[in-house]
Amino acid sequence: MNAINTLSPFDTISHVKSELVWESGRAGSSTRATIAIPTYKRFDTLLEAIASALAQTGVEPPDIVIVDNEGHGDKPAAVWERLEKVGDCRIRYFVNPQNLGMFGNWNRCIQLSETPWLTILNDDDLLRPQFLKRSLLLTDRLPKADGVICRKGTKDRRAFPPITTQPGFRQRLNGAIGKALGGMAFRKGVLKVDARRLFFGNFIGNGAGFLFRKETAIKLGGYDPKEWPAADFFFYVRMVLEGELFLLDEELADVGLGDNESLSPEVLSHFVEQLHHIRMKLAGNAVPARWSAMAPQLAANHILYAARAWGVRLDPGVIGEALGGLNLPPPNPRREYIWRLLHGTF
């Protein structure tokens, strides 16, 4: 799924050397996982993220790697002063002398991890105490897994959350039926994620609660900034095409919702466009070519879902124009529902 490029995403950041500002604790001999926290211009939520990493129970304490994209300043020392109950965890705080961009910083997190498994925890997201235990148990159960990801809740920190559309009776009924059908696809609480399901959208969400092999991430080229803002979804797609990814049917992480650009109309519009491009690449390769006929309807439906879930109204005409003058049909979730039933992708 990578565009033809002479440099990998890791190569493009090789000229910047992250500097270790401080380190605390020592890695345990049986430490298997790193919780890597990329941070930029956040302090209070970063402390919350670190606290959730330190609160992991039932496993060898993880390595914690913090990679600050702001450059030098007072923040590293301030974080050190506020840390409590570090315990046996090893924590390293790195600073990038220049901004690597969001996905560049994620790739640097991968490079700085020293354990077989790692998860990237954004500085406004949280892990629940059983995340590592439950995820690592699943990797023991599925030794060929390249990545496991859990379901997640949300922590809404927005000062004025937008008004979202309340689902009507039919929507609630369809949602309940869809959830029941989706639950039937799980085996012992686990679902193998495949390209067929990802064709219909990013049903596993962002990277919160995603534990993956470092060697696989390096092999896949990490996260490509050119795939913004859907680089994490592109990464999932590459993983299912070249390896194995599993969804754990447990809520073990929380996605922070803040007043930032991630929920802006521009970003959400571009995300809809990126998903359309992914579908067109999958059609004829990982899924039947005829599936491309469903892509305009799915893009139109995602515009509707943005309004329902986030209270953000997107312009289908603008998105269609960005997709080469594509004429998007009216939203029709029921049609998508039938397609998913027919293709067994709940």
Score class of each variant (00 low, 15 high):
N2T: 14
I4Y: 12
N5W: 12
N5D: 15
L7H: 15
D11I: 13
S18Q: 05
V21N: 05
S24P: 00
G25A: 07
R26E: 13
A27T: 09
S30N: 09
T31V: 11
T31N: 04
A33L: 12
T34V: 04
R42G: 02
D44T: 11
T45Q: 06
L47R: 15
E48M: 12
A53Y: 07
T57P: 01
E60K: 06
V65G: 06
V65H: 06
V67F: 03
V79T: 12
K85C: 11
C89Q: 13
R90V: 02
I91L: 14
I91M: 06
Y93N: 06
F94G: 02
G104L: 05
N105C: 14
W106F: 14
N107R: 10
C109Y: 00
E114S: 11
T115H: 07
P116Q: 07
L118H: 07
L118D: 01
L118N: 02
I120G: 01
N122L: 08
L127D: 00
L127W: 01
R128F: 00
Q130W: 04
S135P: 01
L136E: 02
T139I: 08
D140I: 00
R141F: 00
V148G: 07
I149Q: 08
K152M: 08
A159T: 07
T165W: 05
Q166I: 02
Q166H: 02
R172I: 04
L173N: 06
N174K: 11
A176S: 11
A176K: 14
F186Q: 08
R187N: 12
K188M: 00
L191F: 14
R197M: 05
F199Y: 13
F203Y: 15
G205V: 04
L211F: 08
K214G: 04
E215S: 15
K219T: 10
L220I: 13
G222D: 03
G222V: 06
D224H: 07
K226Y: 07
K226W: 07
W228C: 05
A230F: 11
R238G: 02
L241K: 09
L241H: 00
E244M: 06
E244F: 08
F246R: 14
L247E: 07
D249N: 12
L252I: 03
S262M: 10
S262G: 00
P265F: 04
P265N: 08
F271Q: 13
M280Q: 13
G284P: 01
W291G: 00
A293S: 11
M294Q: 05
A295G: 03
A299E: 03
I303C: 06
I303E: 02
L304D: 06
W310Y: 15
I319F: 10
I319V: 09
G325K: 12
N327T: 15
R335V: 02
Y337V: 04
Y337S: 11
Y337F: 15
L342E: 14
H343M: 01
H343P: 00
F346N: 05
F346S: 07
